[in-house]
Design a protein around this nucleic acid. Structure first.
Lengths: 136, 136
DNA sequence: ACATAATTCAACCGAATGGTTCAATATCAT
DNA sequence: ATGATATTGAACCATTCGGTTGAATTATGT
C-alpha cells in the first residue's frame, strides 16, 4: 500500500499549493489565455506570472501553444485527475481505517470499563489521561 | 466560481507535496504512532521527522495525543476531505469546460473549412499554425 | 537519586521559492 | 527600417524548506 516515490505528485501538489497558481488555473478554466491576459488581474509583475505558468507547465497542469509572439496557455487535466485520484483513494482508505480503529477502541474501552468495575476504583486508563493535542 | 484565498488549502497541498510526509501519512493510516516509530523507516534524522509532523499538524492532517514523554500521532481526515473536494470539484469543472471548448472548436473548424473551400486555397488558420508546446 | 529515553529548541546550512528589475529576443504593425 | 508588444533570461533579494548537529526539557525505569 505504501508506494514508491512519485515525483509527479510532488510537482502537482506543489503547484496547486500556491494561491496565485490556483487562481491562474481557475482563469484558464474559462478558456485559453495568453500570459499577459493571465497576469492582468494580479498585483504582481508579468515575470512572476510567467514563472508561475512555467511551474504549472512542469507539473503537467498547463500546456501552451505558441502563436507568433503570443503564448496561449490551456489546461491539461490528466495530471490533475491523477492527483485527485490519489487524494480520493487515500481519503477513503484513511477514513475506513479510522472507523476500524474507532470500533476497536470502543470495544477495548468497554472491556476496560468492565475490568475496572470488577476491580473497583482507578477508572482512568492511560488513554483517558492523554491530554489531547491541537495545542495551537 | 473563483473563490477568495483559502490558506488551509495552501497548507494541505503544501504538506502532501512532500514524499516523506505522504509516507508518514500512509504509515499513520495503519494506526497511531509515536514520532520515534514514524522516524524509524526513514533515512533522515528524528528531528527532521519531528518537523515534518509539525507541518502535517499545522495543515490539520495530523493530531497528537501526548502521553507522558510520548507523542501519539493520528490522522485527522477533515482537511484532507476538503482538499479532495477542491480537486474533485475543479477536475469536474475543468473537464466539462474543456469538453465545451472542444465542441466549440470543432464547430469553428468546420465553419472555417467550409469558408476555405468556398474561397479555395490557404486552408491553414492561425490555430492550425500553432506549434504546440510541451517543448521540454 | 540517576541514567536513559522521547521529544523539542536553537542555530546553522544549502537549495528552492516567490518576488523584483533590467535587459534580450522575437514578432507584429506601420 | 522603426517602434511597440509579448515573452523570456539573468541577476538579485528575502524567506522558506528540508536537512543537520548539539543542547535543553521532561518523563520513565531502576
Amino acid at each position: 500500500m505504501v508506494q514508491y516515490h512519485r515525483p509527479e505528485l510532488d510537482r502537482v501538489f506543489g503547484a496547486v499549493a500556491d494561491p496565485t497558481r490556483r487562481a491562474i488555473l481557475d482563469a484558464l478554466a474559462r478558456g485559453p489565455a495568453r500570459i499577459t491576459d493571465l497576469a492582468r488581474p494580479f498585483p504582481v509583475s508579468l515575470n512572476a506570472i510567467s514563472k508561475h505558468v512555467k511551474i504549472l507547465e512542469r507539473a503537467g497542469l498547463v500546456a501552451r501553444d505558441v502563436v507568433g509572439r503570443e503564448h496561449y496557455c490551456r489546461l491539461e487535466t490528466e495530471r490533475l485527475r491523477e492527483a485527485a485520484a490519489w487524494l480520493e483513494r487515500h481519503k477513503a482508505f484513511w477514513e475506513s481505517r479510522l472507523d476500524a480503529l474507532a470500533r476497536h477502541v470502543t470495544k477495548r474501552r468497554q472491556a476496560e470499563r468492565r475490568a475496572a468495575v470488577r476491580r473497583r476504583g482507578d477508572a482512568g486508563a492511560a488513554h483517558a489521561r492523554a491530554r489531547t493535542g491541537a495545542s495551537r
